[in-house]
Design a protein around this nucleic acid. Structure first.
Lengths: 236, 236
DNA sequence: TTATTGTTGACAATAAAATAACAGGAGTGC
DNA sequence: GCACTCCTGTTATTTTATTGTCAACAATAA
């Protein structure tokens, strides 16, 4: 009913900043701060006040002239914008290191991100439970996904398998993929993908380190690498 | 010697794309493809050929008119640009779920990212080894860092402790921080920080899911959350 | 050789994002 | 209630990023 449904598209840059606003507002709330101006917040967050106001106004006027923003109200509004006022059913596909770590990460649950099942191919894992979450054979995944509404699939499997799995999951009705596999997925455009390419992120850091400690590099060409027995997870 | 050292600054957007180029070129190499044009590559990567050429030309003219780019050569050049032709000494601070998962992730080692030690406060962890890497008491960290050149500290500890630890590490000479703690670090500007805020990333995905399956939400307001015993890692 | 095609690197045009400027409503103090 | 300050929401400007175009040159075919 607001302005003909064509509510102008929010830019990705803004959306990516929302969780950070949410975090800072949560912190303020814990410090019993009830109001804050864009200027004060900008100082804390190291961004311009202008950007804060413009970002927030994409979603509505939450502030008041002469007063600023009410912390609790704004925090709650962003919570709603991000959809954090609901529960989400998730599954983990790939029960390796990263998959297990995510299942064990209890804060997800506190936020409403509920991991319902883990799927793997490794017979030694199948049948086990991780923090109460059962590990199933991937063969059972189709049935599971079709019978249970799955909002998010967390993909922590080798890249060689990730593309096919993602496609299947999309076909079976999973709405979003949180992709830790080191590969670009090809899924229907109504399936949302958020990539967490850890290796890419680390490489970016290394680039910057090299740029700063420029060329002459005290970095250890000669560092003695440890020979250690391998174990598969997110291969490559 | 090249153009007076004031080699124009490379934009962050470009740097963030480099690992992806590197990955695609590696794949091509494995497929025994020896040359590729920006046009072909753009089709594979789903970006414009123009962007590819412009990105690469930030670092030099790697291609040849009428021929394209030599895959092996370009792959190797990007490797050098990213600094992947060296070894890096890393430590993990925080031996919880994520920290352990990263130590167990063998591909890091293959790429030259060598995790030399883990530090934690938990007496049950201290003294153990994870894939051959020893877990030390954080009290020993200062000495270790001062005696061993540490390129990157991987921070996987509760946010309450992360800020202080990061500051200390910076003071003791760690060059870069790969930060998994859900907090913004405040370190001297000559210390590089790359954040991996998993929760933020997931929230972004949830926003998009909500936006697509708009408002009316088939998402489960009523989903039955499991009550499961907690275990600390990256607390909030 | 010589013509034709393919492809880069440079640069111009466009789009997106960030910052700054400002008009005016809401609080505050007297 | 009135003057005055604070601070938002919005519009304008600047900066940054992406895309489009083309001359020059290499590769290939005639």
């Amino acid at each position: 009913m607001d302005k003909m449904d064509s509510e102008k598209r929010i830019s990705p840059a803004v959306i990516n900043r929302l969780p950070r606003y949410y975090r800072y507002l949560g912190d303020l709330l814990e410090s019993d701060i009830t109001r804050i101006s864009s200027k004060e917040l900008s100082a804390k967050m190291n961004i311009t006040a202008s950007q804060i106001r413009q970002d927030l106004n994409n979603f509505g006027g939450f502030g008041q002239q002469g007063y600023g923003y009410n912390v609790e109200y704004l925090h709650n509004e962003i919570k709603k914008i991000l959809g954090l006022d609901r529960l989400y059913n998730m599954i983990v596909v790939g029960g390796g290191n990263i998959g297990q770590a995510l299942v064990n990460y209890t804060n997800f649950e506190k936020r409403g991100f509920v991991i319902k099942a883990v799927f793997d191919t490794n017979p030694r894992l199948i049948g086990m439970t991780i923090r109460g979450v059962e590990v199933y054979d991937v063969d059972q995944m189709e049935q599971y996904v079709k019978n249970n509404s799955v909002d998010v699939a967390i993909l922590t499997l080798p890249r060689s398998k990730a593309v096919k799995v993602a496609n299947d999951l999309a076909k079976w009705g999973v709405k979003g993929m949180w992709n830790f596999s080191h590969v670009d997925l090809q899924v229907p455009e109504d399936v949302l993908v958020e990539n967490v390419h850890l290796t890419d992120s680390l490489m970016t850091l290394l680039y910057k380190i090299n740029e700063m400690y420029c060329e002459e590099s005290e970095l250890h060409q000669l560092s003695n690498g440890l020979p250690i027995k391998p174990k598969v997870d997110l291969e490559d």
